[in-house]
Design a protein around this nucleic acid. Structure first.
Lengths: 151, 151
DNA sequence: CTAATCCCTATAAAACCGATAGAGATAATG
DNA sequence: CATTATCTCTATCGGTTTTATAGGGATTAG
C-alpha cells in the first residue's frame, strides 16, 4: 500500500498539471477541492518543490505551478519521493541499493531472484507512465460508466 | 519494501520445502543456518502453521514439515500473510477491498487507474510463481557467476 | 524423568505515519 | 505603510507497526 502522503501528492500534482497555461493553484484551493488536510498538504507541496517538480510563488496571488512538464514526471518518481524505494528488497534497488546484511550470496538468493521478476514488471509501468499520460486518458474516458479499454 | 518478517518467512519456508521427503526441520536449525532470531522465527513458523502451510510435530525429534505441496504455495500468498494486501491502494485489493474514504469516483480516479496497471503486472508474477518454482530454478543456476537467463 | 521441541502471551524500544500548531518570510493591493 | 493572503520552516504528538526479547507452558521421545 502506498502512504496517504504519496496519494495526496499525486492528487495535488495532477491538479496542478491540469491547470491551464501557467496559472498558479494555491494550497488552500487544492486542499479544499481534494479533501486534503491543509497543513499536511503544505508539507507535501514543499517536498515536491524541493524535488524540483513544482515551482512556487509567494505572497498574495501566489500558488504552485509545474516546474517540469507533466510528461517528464513519472508515477515512480513521485512514489519514490514520498514512500522511498519501490524495490521489494534493498538489494534490488538501483537508486538506493543496500546489501541485505544477512544474505550470503545475492546471485544465489532465491527470494531475490523471484521478487526481481515482480519488481521488473511493476517498475516498467511506474517509471514509464507520466502525469501527462494519466490526464490524457482521463479526458476521453467515460464519465459514469465503468472503465473499459479498447480491446 | 517487504518486511523482515516476510523475508524470514520465505527463507524458512524454502528451507522446509527443500527438505528431502517428509523430514522435519526444527526452528532451532532453521534459525541457526539462516541467521534468523530464534524466538522471532518461532512466531513466524506458528503463523505459517495457522495459515495451513506448515505442519508441526512437537516434543523431542519434532520440527516442521510442509502441509501443502510446495508447488501450491505462491510468493503472493506468503507476502499477504505477513505484510497484508499486495495492492497499492485499498480500492484495488480483491481480497481486502476497502473504498478510499475521500474518493469521489473509483472509475474516474486517475491514480487508481494507473496504479492498477502496475499492480496487475506484479500480481501476475507473485501469484503464479511458487516455492517449487524458486527451488527448481535455484538448482540449475550457476554457483558463483552472476545470474544469467537464457535469451 | 529428562531434555528437546513446539506453543502462547506479554513486554518494549524504535521507527514510521498522519497529522496539528505556530510563527516567520514574502508579495500584492489599496 | 498596513493588511491580507500566501508560501516556508520547525517542532510536536498520539497512534500504529516493526522487530524483536522474555518467560514460561504443553507435548513427546527416549
Amino acid at each position: 500500500m502506498i502512504s496517504n502522503k504519496a496519494k495526496y501528492a499525486l492528487r495535488a500534482l495532477l491538479a496542478v498539471a491540469a491547470q491551464p497555461d501557467g496559472e498558479a493553484l494555491t494550497s488552500t484551493e487544492i486542499a479544499r477541492t481534494h479533501s486534503i488536510p491543509h497543513k499536511f498538504l503544505e508539507q507535501i507541496l514543499l517536498d515536491l518543490k524541493k524535488a524540483g517538480i513544482l515551482e512556487s510563488r509567494r505572497g498574495k496571488a501566489g500558488g504552485y505551478v509545474m516546474l517540469r512538464p507533466a510528461d517528464t514526471i513519472s508515477f515512480g518518481e513521485v512514489l519514490r519521493i514520498f514512500d522511498g524505494p519501490l524495490a521489494p528488497l534493498p538489494c534490488l534497488s538501483r537508486v538506493a541499493y543496500r546489501r541485505c546484511e544477512d544474505c550470503e550470496s545475492e546471485a544465489r538468493c532465491l527470494i531475490r531472484r523471484e521478487l526481481a521478476r515482480s519488481y521488473d514488471a511493476s517498475r516498467q509501468v511506474l517509471d514509464s507512465r507520466t502525469m501527462a499520460d494519466a490526464l490524457r486518458e482521463g479526458q476521453d474516458a467515460p464519465l459514469t460508466a465503468p472503465v473499459r479499454r479498447a480491446g
